[in-house]
Structures are given as C-alpha cells and as structure tokens.
C-alpha cells in the first residue's frame, strides 16, 4: 500500500515539477507548483509527518502560491518568454551536466542508505535524540484496530519546538518574519514623486548625462537659495525634479 501511494505521489510531484520548468505561461507554472506541493504533502503523510502535511498545504498551497499568483496578475507578466536566448555561453550544457551529476550522487546516497554496498545500515546508525530533542513516537495500533498518531505528532513537534534545543531558533524565526514583513512594506511602498521609467537601452549613457546636468543645476539652485535667504534644496529632491524634466 505504501508503495502504491509512493509511486502515485512521486508521479504527481515530478510531473508538476516538469510543468513548473517547461510551461510558458507563469499562471500554469504556478498551478503545476500546487500539484507538486500536494504530492509532497502526500509523501509527508506516507512518512507519518501528519502535521507537516497539513502545514504544507496551508502555508505553501494556500499562502505562497497565492502570493505568486497575486504578483503575476498584478504585473501582467503573463506573456510568453523566449527560452532560446542563452546569456551565458554553454549554460544549457552545464545544466545537463548538473542533471547527470546530481542523479549519480542521488543514486550513490540511495545505495549507501540502503546499506547494501557500503555504509552503516540505518538501524545501527540510529542514535538516541540528544538532550532536548524528542524521538518520533511510533504509530500504535490499539486492540480494536484504531490508530493513534496524529495528535501525538502535533504534541511532540510543539514540545520539541519549545525545548531547549530549538527555542532560540524559534525566536530567531519570529525576528526573521518581522524583518520580512517590514522589508516587504518598505520595498513595495510607492515613492512620493513618481519616477519616469528608465529607457531600456543605454542605461549607463543616460545616467552619465543626467549626472552632469544635475550637478551643474544643483549648484545654481543652491546659489539662488542663498541669495534669497531660503532653506537650501536638498540634493535628492532636485535630482528627482531633473528626472521629471
């Protein structure tokens, strides 16, 4: 039964991943990503990580992919993309080489973990969780055939998160989330003065001309302000005014 579930979910995961990479439309790619995340959640259930399966669906499929879709719709970048261009010479061959290399390494890891050729067999390598950590409680089957595990899984993860081993990382996580929220607000805030979009070609030439103009005009403005006795204009504001012209 576990094998059937594994192979079905693996098919979903790999098909979704290929969809993310090869579909042209970003909306379709995001939906393929949802398929992959659902497959991963099924694998988590298969591995008896019930809480993580729920979190995977709620956080990834419910929040992150929706965020992707919001940005796709907001920017209107759902246009086809030319995949043929190759900015770095030979990057496709490098990608193929990486595929082969990772597959070889993955196979080696699989063989080593199975303990058939080399390495320590998994059961002998098992060590007791050190102080503060918790062991996974096995699924227990009661006399009448009912299985008790899900609540135990959540309890154990909660206790483990707030144990001496992980509580510092947990607090750092809270700090990280706060920084992310503040950073997102700061980054996506519109500036008071709307900049005109920079022309696509010859950014550097445009920038140099603008710089030379700006410096001369700023000096003039400052001189006028000093004569009139006004507060001198700060440099960034005058620079943005120059860009508007």
């Amino acid at each position: 039964m576990e094998a059937v579930t594994f192979f079905i979910a693996a098919g979903v995961v790999l098909a979704g991943a290929c969809g993310v990479v090869f579909l042209k439309n970003p909306v379709h790619a995001a939906l393929s990503l949802v398929a992959t995340l659902f497959g991963i959640a099924i694998h988590f259930i298969n591995l008896e990580a019930y809480f993580l399966a729920a979190v995977q669906i709620i956080v990834y499929a419910g929040a992150i992919v929706i965020l992707f879709l919001f940005v796709i719709m907001l920017l209107g970048v759902d246009r086809a993309e030319n995949i043929r261009t190759e900015p770095i010479i030979g990057q496709r061959h490098l990608a193929l080489l990486a595929l082969v290399g990772f597959l070889v390494i993955g196979t080696l890891i699989g063989i080593a973990t199975a303990g058939e050729v080399t390495g320590v067999p998994p059961q002998e390598a098992t060590f007791l969780p050190s102080e503060g950590g918790l062991a996974i409680e096995q699924v227990t089957e009661l006399g009448d055939g009912t299985i008790v595990a899900p609540e135990e899984n959540i309890h154990d993860i909660g206790r483990s998160l707030f144990s001496t081993r992980y509580v510092f990382a947990l607090e750092l996580t809270a700090l990280l989330l706060t920084i992310a929220v503040v950073g997102a607000v700061v980054l996506s805030r519109r500036p008071k003065i709307e900049f005109e979009s920079i022309p696509e070609t010859e950014v550097s030439a445009f920038f140099q001309i603008e710089q030379s103009d700006q410096s001369s005009v700023v000096v003039e403005e400052v001189c006028e302000d000093e004569i009139a006795g006004h507060e001198p204009v700060t440099e960034p504001k005058s620079g943005s005014e120059m860009m508007d012209e």
Partner: peptide, 14 residues
C-alpha cells in the same frame, strides 16, 4: 528511505 532520497534528488535537479 532510498526511494524518498532518489525522488528528492530528482526534484532538486529539476
């Protein structure tokens, strides 16, 4: 676990 690791490696490569 080897099966899961192989799947994980393939997903990472993709």
């Amino acid at each position: 676990p080897g099966y899961y690791l192989a799947l994980s490696a393939m997903l990472f490569v993709i």
